[in-house]
Design a protein around this nucleic acid. Structure first.
Lengths: 213, 213, 213, 213
DNA sequence: GATGAATGAGGGTTCATTCAT
DNA sequence: AATGAATGAACCCTCATTCAT
């Protein structure tokens, strides 16, 4: 069975792409790290580019899936649903850390592939968040305010840990890869939603945070 | 005079590094775009790496300079100072768009150079913003809240246009490179500062925005 | 099978290094002469330098081996043993003519590699000859005389054909690469040993030589 | 006046050619070492090759000159004349150590230039020595023996210090560049001439040598 | 199914030289 | 007389890929 071999290769590729970028990574290096024959990259994935694309789409599909709101959550408040999606996305990226960083970086390149993926996945993400926010504003859960700028802030906060982890490490004195990081980050996001989006008093938790800092 | 040649090369390099990344760009391509001989890259900059490093540090030094608050502004309110810095940074990155995107992307790589630049420039940026926020909170201009998370939001909003311009283009139907974009973006940031940081009523401008969207 | 390819390359490299020196020989030229792809030089030998070093050590190891006195010869007289070693060394270098010339020339360079090889192989050669001479003098086969100068003469005569073949060609009207050359050269050496080292009358063969010249 | 500049360049070139060979030396390096502009190599000598050829011929002309026997010496015995020439040649090479080593090495290359120089200078050297030896044998100063082999030994001993100085250093524990070396080497050569060529008893000096070793 | 040999293209760098000044 | 900018060719090496086995 070769599934294990394929996975070893994808894992090694993700790790290297994340560290040194697509162009900075050689097929030879991937094969070495995965402890397999070099020719297998072409054999299994149709070349370096194929391997890369597979990693990209695989990650992005999981990303959209993570945005999905299950039936149970759909019963809860809009605020709860928003929080749930945020938590889910952060958690997904945390579990695929190398891929997440790889994707976010390569997304900044100008290539046909990237532009295609953009108009497929990015648009979907934006649309889902927009729906959620509009509903919350309509029903009065969220303060009325320009949706686009809220979207910008949301996206900034969701991607920052995987786009600029050094900055967060500096701030929190805590690596973004450690499990505890997410908890803390979500707490902050919750307080942001409550104060800036819902316009309610910060919770007790946040008061504590306030004193700490 | 060779200054002109050097500038042509740096410009071409920045453009290509921004589009295809450091490893994805060949010295030959840079020379072609700059319409100069290939050997000049080594001749002037000591190689591709030297050219890259020069672009990096040059940008980052200008970045820190852009953070500086001049004497006139220092007379104004803390809110005004914060806005001034934000405007200055966005403007600087706008004027060096290719470099800005190049730097932000390559900053996500794991290399000795990057880590060194990080601990020099990034730390300085964080420190300056922190000072400003602390002062504002102390004097009551800003609401008391966890500083680190405000920093995260700030950085997210300042870098997003150069890290994920496609997203903004999708939102604003406006390229981030167009001069008008900054105006609009700063308006949003102002409203964010007023409502989330200062805790005052949104201005009339923002109400208009609200209707537009 | 790749052994054949490797050998082709080594042969071509030795021939070119011998003709034009290490720095004067390009990898491209080697590959062309060996009728193989250029990349194979790096693939098999880790680069031009690796190929060169392999040729060097390979030759020198064979050289030391050629100095070894087998059990049968060890039964004979010291004079016979000395002659045997000389014959063996000349024969070995004759069979690896290109390599011999390459090595002797590159040995005159100032580099780390060369200095290392020197202190390994050259010292061994000197030591073995010294032993042989000392023994011969002790047992009375050889005239007592300063050993170091005998060593100098020996080395001069053994290396000259591969270091300055033009000179010998001029003298003998005979290329040093032709098989007959060695016979003649060894005859001369024998006569030198007999007269200068052993102090006995020159043989009849030498008398004939005398008339010829 | 530019004569000084020219000399600086020739000196630097000789030093580098001697250390790293012709092909291993770059014009840039020569200019750096001589502390002059790179373009001057082409300007003064018509390129790297021209500079090299000038060094070669200059050395070789001096070499032939050093072979010349002045009128005073011509009065002395043939043995004395031979010794005088040997001393002169060794001394000349000692005074142009870098050039000597450079020439001897590059002489082992296969190129048009080298072959031309060979047939001009080498032949002359051989001819002069031959004359001397023949005369000596005719008049009975030297033992009758094959001239060609004597020539080989002579040339071997005269060039060895500049072709394989490491070997001599190992033997004498004395660098071939030190002035004292020549004295010692000439002593050995004298004893060789006396015993092997003239067939007389070794001198007292050699007896001492014998004990030392 | 999986491999090691081999390939051609392209990578970045260094070279000796030229030319306007 | 002497220089610094600039050139094109060649340097060695690594790349991703293919192919027979």
């Amino acid at each position: 069975m070769s599934e294990a071999t394929r996975d070893k290769m994808k894992e090694a590729a993700a790790r290297l792409f994340y560290t040194q970028g697509y162009h900075g990574t050689s097929v030879r290096h991937i094969a070495e790290q995965a402890n397999v024959n070099i020719a297998l990259v072409s054999y299994y994935f149709g070349g370096k580019k194929g391997l890369f694309e597979q990693l990209m789409t695989q990650f992005l599909e999981g990303y959209l899936e993570a945005m999905h709101i299950d039936d149970e959550t759909r019963m809860k408040s809009t605020r709860e649903q928003l929080l749930s999606v945020i938590r889910s996305l952060l958690s997904y990226q945390q579990n695929h850390y190398h891929l997440a960083r790889m994707v976010h970086r390569e997304m900044t390149m100008d290539s046909v592939l990237v532009r295609e993926l953009m108009s497929t996945y990015l648009r979907k993400e934006k649309h889902d968040f927009e729906q959620l926010l509009r509903r919350g504003m309509k029903e009065g859960s969220f303060n009325k305010q320009p949706i686009d700028f809220v979207l910008i802030q949301l996206r900034g906060m969701i991607t920052l840990p995987y786009y600029s982890p050094q900055y967060l490490r500096e701030l929190y004195q805590l690596s973004t890869t450690e499990p505890y990081f997410i908890n803390r980050y979500v707490e902050h996001l919750t307080s942001w939603i409550d104060s800036c989006l819902c316009g309610i008093e910060p919770t007790r938790t946040n008061r504590v945070m306030l004193k700490i800092n």
